[in-house]
Design a protein around this nucleic acid. Sequence first.
RNA 1: GGCCCCAUAGUGAAGCGGUUAACACACCAGCCUUUCACGCUGGCGACGCGGGUUCGAAUCCCGCUGGGGUCACCA
Length: 485
Amino acid sequence: MVMELRKPVRVRMAPSPTGDAHVGHARTTLYNYLLARQHGGTFILRIDDTDTKRNVEEAETGVYRGLRWLGLDWDEGPDKGGPHAPYRQSERLPIYHKYVKQLLESGKAYECFCTPEELEAEREAQQEAKVDIKYSGKCRHLTEAEREELRAAGRVPTVRLKVPDKKIGFHDLVRGWIEADGSLIGDFIILKSNGIPVYNFATVIDDHLMQINQVTRGAEHISNTFPQILIYQALGFEIPQFAHFSLMLNEDRSKMSKRKGATFVGQYAEMGYLPEAMINFLAFLGWSPGEEVVDEIMDMDDLLEKFSLEHCSASNAVFDIKKLDWINAKWIRRLEPADLAQRLVPFLQKAGFIGDDYDLDHLTKVASLIQERLPRLDAVRDFHYLFLEPEVPTTEIKKVLKDKDGQAGLQAVIAATESLPWQEAELETAIRQTQAELGWSTKELFMTLRLALCGGKVSPPLFSTMEVIGKERVIRRLQAAAALL
RNA sequence: GGCCCCAUAGUGAAGCGGUUAACACACCAGCCUUUCACGCUGGCGACGCGGGUUCGAAUCCCGCUGGGGUCACCA
């Protein structure tokens, strides 16, 4: 969909403070962020907290944490301030009231005294009669006297917008022309009886006041766009450009939800995904560079260079965790070992492999040893034998050795290496020589050592693993194993 | 159910009226190799269906089917 962005670009992300950031929100935020940074524009974070029931304690900071972890930062927001403060809708109530009043006075909106129960009954009746479900508009023609009477009876009104019978359409930056029929919408509430505006209303007012010129958000907002346009028009505001991104789906193509797999950014952090990988993966979910690339590993700078709305897909995308794993593994391999070691620390602590006091130099050696076999940081737990004493799988060893004398073999290795400078190359020379003297096959000796040292048949290359485990521990483990054979 | 959006391999996608229908992940096989992993090479695999328009449709139009979104004094 080819169309110019309005300049200077001002985009926003407006989450409600429901806790941790959802991965879908993360992607929308990323796209907004890229658009702003690409064009020297401004990215605004606004907290849509008009539903007081939904606000969770600390939830706002949870959203910040998720976005910051990803490296997405904003220019204006509740915590940063800016020329259009406040950036929290709950603090902007007088502003909304002013515009509601304006609509009331110009006759574009009216008070509605229907109770929730009455409205519910109306909806049910419509459902039964199989006609379109929309508000009947019965309060639209109340006289001032009738309104006074209802007020006196203790009824507190909501305010509804008069919806005209006409087509409402807009040009979506990723989907093209979209239109719907206003006659199907019905006069909707813009101000609740508790004096708090409804989402669609607050959003329009804020987007206008904050001079948002491209509203880029998830496809779940397409149907909100129609009433929002009506509000822009009623108020005489300039309508921004819209772009609606596709949704993210579970493997079975159902909407991504908590039930099926992780949905929050924080969960991915805990599983040991790198923020760089997360960004990379999210970027490619619903967008592509539109040209052939060798692989799809891109950092923020690459994305800044390549991203464009034109290559955003309109169709929903399945969140493929296998691909995330691949991207994550790629990113882990790209890290400097010292950096990787640093990032591994919390995972090692959680696994109980290290305490608060640890040797970062040693961890760096560990990191380079295991770096290319780590799909996620939490996979370090598979390398427990680099930290803890493994259990010796004697039956496994016997199976490998068959008729060979394991005790003799192990003792020979101990004798050959005991006084060696403890380095990979030295160990390899000595052990290969021992193997020749023993007359064992490579597999027999190496697998026996691996089993004795690591407790399993899988490990990084033997000699470098031995170096990292350290002389003392290696000798001790070999002796212990020998005693068991 | 009404309205809206979407539809290329298992997944993400390129394609913009004429292509042997890219590429990436996954999967399979081989190579490398002390195991695993990495890496390399090769392979399997797709235009949802039906009508048009056109000399020619994955590309344009219509219908159907399927999936998704949305119909609150939620956001």
